[in-house]
C-alpha cells in the first residue's frame, strides 16, 4: 500500500460524477435520471475510497470507508424514495388531464 498512487481512481470517480450530472440534466426519462443520480453517488464514493487509500499507514484510512457505508445506505433510501415518488406521480398524471390540477 505505502507507495502506490491511487489517484487515478479518484479521477475516475470525478468522471463518473460529471457523467452522472450530465445525464441527470439531459435525460427526460425519470428512471434514467434516478440512475444518473446513482452514478453520481458511485463517483463520490469512489473518490472517498481512493483518497482513503492514499493516506500513509499500514491500512487504508477507515474513516472514509465508514462514511461511504453511511453514504451507500442513504443513497439506497434516496433511490427507494425517488422511485416510489415517480411511480405515484405518474399514476396521478394518468388520472388527471394536463392542466386540470387541483
Amino acid at each position: 500500500m505505502p507507495d502506490a498512487d491511487y489517484r487515478i481512481y479518484a479521477l475516475a470517480g470525478m468522471a463518473l460524477f460529471a457523467i452522472g450530472f450530465y445525464s441527470m440534466l439531459v435525460q427526460a426519462h425519470l428512471l434514467r435520471r434516478i440512475m444518473a443520480l446513482n452514478v453520481m453517488g458511485s463517483g463520490v464514493f469512489l473518490v472517498y475510497i481512493a483518497l482513503g487509500a492514499q493516506t500513509p499507514g499500514p491500512i487504508p484510512d477507515p474513516v472514509p470507508h465508514a462514511m461511504v457505508l453511511t453514504g451507500i445506505v442513504v443513497s439506497v433510501c434516496a433511490t427507494g424514495l425517488a422511485l416510489a415518488l415517480v411511480d405515484r406521480a405518474q399514476a396521478a398524471a394518468s388520472e388527471v388531464e394536463p392542466g386540470d390540477d387541483a
Binding site: 460524477f17 415518488l85 387541483a102
Partner: peptide, 30 residues
C-alpha cells in the same frame, strides 16, 4: 394532488443532486 406530486418530483431531484455536490465537497475537504 397532481400539482403537489409534480412539485415534489422536481424537489426530490434538486435535493438529492444538491446533497451529492455537498458530499463530494466534504470528501475533498477531508
Amino acid at each position: 394532488t397532481h400539482a403537489a406530486l409534480t412539485a415534489a418530483l422536481r424537489y426530490v431531484f434538486v435535493s438529492l443532486s444538491a446533497s451529492l455536490f455537498y458530499l463530494l465537497g466534504v470528501g475533498l475537504v477531508y
